[in-house]
């Protein structure tokens, strides 16, 4: 399915109806404006009943952890773990999330078994636990935090060359590859 059709409401409607999970990797939501908090008092202008009910039934809980964990300390703890385990901690609390977010570039790298670029320019990445079809720029950019065991390309067509150039730009030329494999033999000039 093309990315333009994803913005179509029917795509989500159908998926929701039949219980098909959304492809969250390639779905980029539109940037929203900063939301101004609405007053919870009924008399004030801009009162939202929905928000008031949400606050009533789902009040924001505050962290019990008395000590504020610094980013440096958390980085030293998370550097002992693989990237998956470390990033998982972002879901613990706001404090953890805000401490981990700035240190993400310094965490350990993901290990990808294979990154394949097909003749039509499509990119597939196979990790240890799952494989992903990389479409969005965001998902391609995330390759800079990956260690790729094998990079495989079908042939060096113009399309593939453009894709490689795009990967290079998006990852700031920080793609780490152990082995390069191809169906075609290349000369030095290519």
């Amino acid at each position: 399915m093309s990315s333009s059709s994803r913005t179509d409401k029917s795509y989500f409607k159908k998926r929701r109806k039949y219980g098909i999970p959304f492809d969250y990797i390639d779905y980029q939501p539109k940037r929203r404006r900063c939301q101004i908090p609405r007053p919870l008092n009924e008399d004030e202008p801009g009162y939202s009943r929905r928000k008031a009910l949400r606050e009533q039934y789902y009040p924001v809980k505050k962290s019990k952890l008395k000590t504020t964990v610094s980013s440096d300390l958390l980085l030293d703890v998370l550097q002992c773990l693989n990237r998956n385990e470390a990033l998982k901690c972002q879901l613990v609390s706001k404090q953890f999330h805000s401490a981990i977010a700035p240190v993400r570039p310094y965490l350990s790298l993901h290990i990808l078994d294979e990154l394949a670029i097909h003749y039509n320019g499509e990119i597939y990445a196979a990790g240890r636990e799952r494989s992903v079809h990389l479409k969005s720029k965001h998902s391609i950019a995330s390759l800079r935090y990956c260690l790729i065991n094998t990079l495989q390309i079908d042939s060096l067509s113009k399309r593939i060359f453009e894709k490689l150039k795009m990967i290079k730009n998006l990852t700031y030329a920080k793609l780490k590859v152990n082995e390069f494999r191809s169906c075609q033999t290349f000369t030095i000039t290519t």
């Binding site: 505050k62 998956n84 609390s93």
Partner: peptide, 23 residues
């Protein structure tokens, strides 16, 4: 002993950002 103070939207956003993570 930490309480969950992240909203569902924030959690979804974190999951979306971490492409390679399995939770």
């Amino acid at each position: 002993g930490i309480e969950d103070d992240l909203t569902e939207e924030e959690k979804a956003e974190i999951r979306r950002t971490n492409v390679w993570c399995t939770y």
